[in-house]
Nucleic acid binder design. Sequence first.
RNA 1: GGCGCUUUCGUCUAGCGGCUAGGACACAUGCCUCUCACGCAUGGAACACGGGUUCGAUUCCCGUAGGCGCUACCA
Length: 505
Amino acid sequence: MNDRKVRVRFAPSPTGPLHIGGVRTALYNYLFAKQNGGDFIFRLEDTDSNRFVEGAEEYILESFRWLGIKFDEGVSFGGNYGPYRQSERREIYKKYVKILLDADKAYIAFDTPEELDKKRAEIENFQYDASTRLSMRNSLSMPAEEVQALIDGGHKYVVRFKIEPGEKVVVNDIIRGVVTIDSSILDDKVLYKSADELPTYHLANIVDDHLMEVTHVIRGEEWLPSAPLHVLLYRAFGWEDTMPAFAHLSLLLKPEGNGKLSKRDGDKLGFPVFPLEWKDPATGAISSGYRESGYLPEAVVNFLALLGWNPGDDVEMMDVEELIKKFDLTHCSKAGARFDYKKMIWFNHEYIIKKSDEEVAEMFAPVVESHGVSVDAATLTKIVSLMKGRVNFVHELWEASNFYFIAPESYDEKTVKKRWKADSAVKMTELAALLESLDDFSIENQEKEVKAWIESKEYSLGEIMNAFRLALVGEGKGPQMFDISGIIGKEETLARLKKAVEVLG
RNA sequence: GGCGCUUUCGUCUAGCGGCUAGGACACAUGCCUCUCACGCAUGGAACACGGGUUCGAUUCCCGUAGGCGCUACCA
């Protein structure tokens, strides 16, 4: 059992876009698999035909491609344990349902959903279990011939797991330790529905994990209450010796207020809760995605890895290789983690700085182009090198550095008031004359000549530079002045100076 | 309601019987400076509460309170 090859899976339901919490679960599975030289499986749990959403599967796959989380096998990846789409495994589940039925560990029930709803309305805390099952319409309470007749007559039925009450069921969780529950509180879960000939999550999950030789089940905490049921299922099948180890991850909580993280929180506070932008096929509503919002996949991965886990040291910036090396399920926190989107933004900032100027320039180029500006790669790279440390997102580079590409059309009022003095026009005209006389317009030479001139005239550095900045930028921001004039060039610099003198007087 | 999980600065967390309770984000202040940022430095800021166990509890146990989850023919 210990020498089995590590195999883990991420098994979403294609009911819509992948939630960021799901992304974290997948990431932890991935890190764990890679650390142990194991396999990472992508399985699709599409056993609820009513909730199928067009495009969700491709969305999920594309999300992981963007994040760099790679699967070894599964839907669209191939593998020897397929099919990996549960809707294509009907015959397999039927076989195992029969095994349970034949062993008297499950039974057939005819109660309709409506009848059950009625029952729940009538009786407080009604539960379909050992205490009530004999008063319901099922193969335990009805004669065999009648059951057969109903089935033959095409009546829809479900198969329920027959849970023996009064048993202490123990789940050994890697993160939480021993969790014990009394089987009496469990209900006779529906395992299979004849209506669509599909199992429910619980049965499909156990059968697939067993058949696919999954060794570790790493999933969200919302599954903890049903883990005992799953243990009981493994036991019923006689698979206890190869039962996977469980690790239930704490949930992601709203940044503020109560409850788990939802799409609404993102909308309200201005951060995405989905990896990619998603357009709801039914309503047409658009939900923002990390990718489209300008987050770098490595920043998202780094941030998510640290939300509920930490390496035990003070290192926070880690690439995926390092995460794989350090990841440890036993160091995962047990309590839910509030989603700290401000820290997410900080990570993005750090990763932009970490990237080469060339790489960032390449990402920035389409943004510049979209503003109808064309600029050569070398200049753009130079601009990026000056500006990238000042932004949290690549697209913010435009707002931060558009003065490189476009001359100011107006001058910020406050800055004018503060930086444009009565004699500024005269001094800027003098500065323009000096700059025009320069054959060498390099940043270094401009600085040398202009500073010498300021000194000889006994002007203050500030008054000249601030007015100069206002003329070139239109407001009081930006890097060192000669890093601006040097890049936009002599002609443009002189033109902007001239215009400022004309407009501001 | 029942069952389970959980509880260290505002937030993410380190801590695994003896610490001035550490780091990061955020915040504040200062420095840098031709501006705005960045960066750097400094600072404020936490063991939910009550009982035990122990020479000694943030740490172990039991309660209470809060938080979270589950309680479907959804996953």
